[in-house]
Deep mutational scan, measured.
Amino acid sequence: HNLTITQGKLFFHYNPKLCLSEIHKMEEVSGTKGRQERNDIALKTNGDQASCENELLKFSYIRTSFDKILLRWEPYWPPDFRDLLGFMLFYKEAPYQNVTEFDGQDACGSNSWTVVDIDPPLRSNDPKSQNHPGWLMRGLKPWTQYAIFVKTLVTFSDERRTYGAKSDIIYVQTDATNPSVPLDPISVSNSSSQIILKWKPPSDPNGNITHYLVFWERQAEDSELFELDYCLKGLKLPSRTWSPPFESEDSQKHNQSEYEDSAGECCSCPKTDSQILKELEESSFRKTFEDYLHNVVFVPRKTSSGTGAEDPRPSRKRRSLGDVGNVTVAVPTVAAFPNTSSTSVPTSPEEHRPFEKVVNKESLVISGLRHFTGYRIELQACNQDTPEERCSVAAYVSARTMPEAKADDIVGPVTHEIFENNVVHLMWQEPKEPNGLIVLYEVSYRRYGDEELHLCVSRKHFALERGCRLRGLSPGNYSVRIRATSLAGNGSWTEPTYFYVTDYLDVPSNIA
């Protein structure tokens, strides 16, 4: 807008934040220059609390790290170098490059900038070799853009010569660093050979998330399962459950009422301010606690030095998902009996873990797994792929695949051998790939016309006998059925096997 004052003059007093240069501009645009008398524009009460600059400061050096910015700028000295009290560095987070010096300023003089007072450097006698002032900004957020400017702080001049310097606002972004852990990993099994893994992005990506790394490792069953005799009275049979499938998407929606109208769909109840505040506090606490764990609990591995020492970490090797089922080394339970199943799973520490690289999504279907087997899954978020990966501390989750139908069934015939004193040795093959492992066998036998009897055969007993022995049988026709019990439950009964026990007292003698 054009402003013209045809008559009258300007009068400025007691404006401590208004620089004289701005008042002189007002004289020019209003056409009143030359009308004012000496005392109409006070030299001592206008701009006496402001830094009124008329020179431009330029930054000469900028260096960044993930949490620091090192700045240096060209030296500046007023005509009387004693008038320079120091520099004021202003900075704040700036997602967009549209910041002005006066953003967030209120009537009390406060604003949204963080201000650092910096002492002037030592003055050199040689004007050509003056030290460049600077400042190291610490405690910054990774991968965050900051708006920065600097200006001088000078003393009051009796001659009211307006001098000083100020830089333009520059924008500097800190470097990326390792992201925080992925949030809320959930693993479920939808079949006997697959596990579905879902997660949420890290709360602090500290860069642009480029991919996720998912490692999985087959877990050995508890050692007590191999040692305890679950045929003993009072000892509860062990059981394991597989990871249940995901709930429906509708039930997972946030901010939804727990109660549904019987007449149909209901609208979600909005969260109160107290609920939102509580969630923010919980989120802040979780982030602080995660940072504490990362800094205190997890110790970084030592990389190899120039002395030739090897990095103890196993090298990563990509495998196809079809090879995942046989990740671990199978060892027989008892070496003397080769027909026992290889369900003991000690994992070799030198073995390469299978892994998958996930790009542009937060889910993965891990296939080719062994049925009813526990897996430990390790999830890392990465925001750099080359020249070397920059990934987060791992988040861990466990899951067990679903049982395989008929995996616990005894394959092959049940054979028998009759000894003296009416002892019958029953023999059968253990299931080759049971659900988890076989903890015991149930032997059901009966003599024709009598009630059915049951015998429990422990895992250890089966390994020693290759089956079991029935003792003290009365003469007669017998039928026997056997079924295995694994961590997933009972298998199917075998087809009945028949044998006849004679009275050993009636056996004919070869003595003449």
Score class of each variant (00 low, 15 high):
205 P>H: 03
206 N>M: 03
208 N>E: 05
208 N>V: 06
209 I>R: 15
211 H>P: 01
212 Y>V: 11
214 V>R: 00
214 V>H: 00
215 F>P: 00
216 W>R: 07
217 E>S: 11
218 R>S: 06
222 D>R: 14
224 E>P: 14
225 L>S: 07
226 F>V: 12
226 F>A: 05
227 E>C: 13
232 L>K: 04
232 L>A: 09
234 G>T: 07
234 G>E: 12
235 L>F: 09
235 L>C: 11
236 K>I: 04
236 K>Q: 05
236 K>A: 15
237 L>R: 07
238 P>T: 11
240 R>K: 08
241 T>V: 11
242 W>Q: 09
243 S>C: 06
244 P>S: 11
244 P>C: 10
245 P>E: 10
245 P>G: 12
247 E>L: 10
247 E>V: 12
249 E>Q: 13
252 Q>S: 11
252 Q>W: 11
253 K>S: 06
254 H>S: 15
255 N>S: 10
255 N>L: 03
256 Q>W: 06
256 Q>T: 08
258 E>N: 13
260 E>S: 10
262 S>K: 04
263 A>E: 06
264 G>S: 05
264 G>C: 04
265 E>V: 07
267 C>F: 14
269 C>P: 05
269 C>F: 05
270 P>C: 02
271 K>E: 13
274 S>N: 08
275 Q>L: 07
275 Q>D: 05
275 Q>C: 06
276 I>Y: 08
277 L>S: 00
277 L>M: 03
279 E>K: 02
280 L>N: 15
281 E>A: 10
284 S>T: 12
285 F>K: 14
285 F>S: 13
285 F>R: 14
286 R>H: 05
288 T>Q: 02
288 T>Y: 14
289 F>Y: 03
289 F>G: 03
290 E>V: 07
292 Y>K: 12
292 Y>C: 01
293 L>A: 14
293 L>Q: 15
293 L>V: 11
294 H>N: 03
295 N>A: 11
295 N>S: 11
296 V>F: 08
296 V>N: 11
296 V>S: 12
297 V>S: 09
299 V>R: 14
300 P>T: 09
300 P>W: 02
300 P>I: 04
303 T>E: 14
306 G>N: 13
306 G>E: 04
306 G>F: 09
306 G>L: 06
306 G>Y: 05
307 T>K: 10
307 T>D: 13
311 D>Q: 09
313 R>K: 13
313 R>V: 14
316 R>E: 09
316 R>Y: 01
318 R>Y: 03
319 R>S: 09
320 S>Y: 14
323 D>R: 14
323 D>N: 07
323 D>L: 04
323 D>H: 08
325 G>N: 10
327 V>D: 12
327 V>S: 07
327 V>F: 07
329 V>D: 13
329 V>A: 05
334 V>N: 07
334 V>L: 13
334 V>C: 03
335 A>Y: 06
336 A>W: 15
337 F>E: 07
338 P>I: 14
340 T>Q: 06
342 S>T: 14
344 S>D: 04
345 V>L: 10
349 P>Y: 10
352 H>I: 04
353 R>N: 13
353 R>T: 02
354 P>L: 11
355 F>V: 09
356 E>K: 13
356 E>D: 05
357 K>Q: 06
359 V>F: 04
360 N>K: 05
361 K>I: 14
362 E>K: 07
364 L>E: 15
366 I>W: 01
366 I>E: 00
367 S>L: 10
367 S>C: 06
368 G>I: 04
368 G>C: 10
368 G>H: 04
370 R>S: 14
370 R>A: 14
371 H>V: 06
371 H>Q: 11
372 F>V: 01
373 T>I: 10
374 G>I: 12
375 Y>G: 00
375 Y>T: 02
376 R>Q: 06
378 E>L: 06
379 L>R: 00
381 A>W: 01
383 N>P: 02
384 Q>I: 04
387 P>N: 14
392 S>V: 02
392 S>Y: 02
393 V>G: 01
394 A>R: 10
395 A>S: 11
395 A>W: 15
395 A>P: 03
397 V>K: 11
397 V>R: 14
397 V>N: 14
398 S>F: 04
398 S>R: 05
401 T>P: 04
403 P>F: 10
403 P>E: 06
404 E>N: 11
404 E>Q: 13
406 K>M: 04
406 K>N: 00
412 G>P: 04
412 G>F: 11
412 G>S: 15
412 G>V: 08
414 V>I: 12
416 H>L: 11
416 H>C: 09
417 E>H: 04
419 F>V: 14
422 N>M: 05
422 N>E: 15
422 N>I: 02
423 V>H: 02
424 V>N: 01
425 H>G: 03
427 M>F: 13
430 E>V: 10
430 E>P: 14
431 P>V: 14
431 P>G: 03
435 N>F: 01
439 V>W: 09
440 L>P: 00
440 L>T: 02
445 Y>G: 15
445 Y>T: 03
447 R>H: 09
447 R>M: 05
448 Y>D: 13
448 Y>K: 04
449 G>D: 11
453 L>C: 10
455 L>M: 08
456 C>Y: 01
457 V>I: 03
460 K>V: 15
460 K>Q: 09
460 K>Y: 06
461 H>E: 08
462 F>V: 10
462 F>R: 13
462 F>Q: 11
463 A>I: 10
463 A>Q: 09
464 L>N: 12
465 E>F: 10
466 R>S: 11
466 R>A: 05
467 G>V: 06
470 L>M: 08
470 L>F: 03
471 R>D: 02
472 G>K: 13
474 S>G: 05
474 S>R: 04
475 P>D: 04
475 P>T: 09
475 P>M: 10
476 G>I: 00
476 G>V: 00
477 N>K: 13
478 Y>M: 00
481 R>Y: 08
483 R>F: 01
485 T>S: 11
486 S>Y: 01
487 L>G: 01
487 L>Q: 05
487 L>E: 06
487 L>M: 11
489 G>N: 13
489 G>W: 13
490 N>Y: 10
491 G>L: 01
493 W>V: 09
495 E>F: 12
496 P>G: 00
497 T>S: 05
498 Y>E: 14
499 F>Q: 00
499 F>I: 09
501 V>G: 00
501 V>R: 02
502 T>N: 08
502 T>V: 10
502 T>G: 09
503 D>N: 07
503 D>T: 11
503 D>Y: 14
504 Y>V: 11
504 Y>A: 07
505 L>K: 07
506 D>W: 09
508 P>V: 13
509 S>P: 11
510 N>S: 06
